[in-house]
């Protein structure tokens, strides 16, 4: 599973590993976006119309 080192001594990923990494990154981005949307929806659901009832 360990890959060949490149000229800088870093690990050179195979095209398949790069594809896997891209898919993982997209999945993490989707999960984060979903998390933000969920927190927003929960906030709206919990506060409801009370958010408008602020003392002036």
């Amino acid at each position: 599973m360990l890959d060949d080192k490149n000229a800088d001594g870093g690990v050179e990923l195979t095209p398949e590993q790069k594809k896997m990494r891209r898919t993982r990154n997209i999945a993490i981005a989707v999960a984060l976006a979903a998390f933000v949307a969920i927190i927003y929806a929960v906030t709206v659901a919990k506060l409801g119309v009370n958010v408008l009832k602020r003392p002036i």
Binding site: M1, L2, M20, R24
Partner: peptide
Amino acid sequence: ASPSGDDARVYSGSVRDYL
């Protein structure tokens, strides 16, 4: 159990593996 060990491994699992 991973063939390469944890210390210097490339994360190679697919999203499905993590799920």
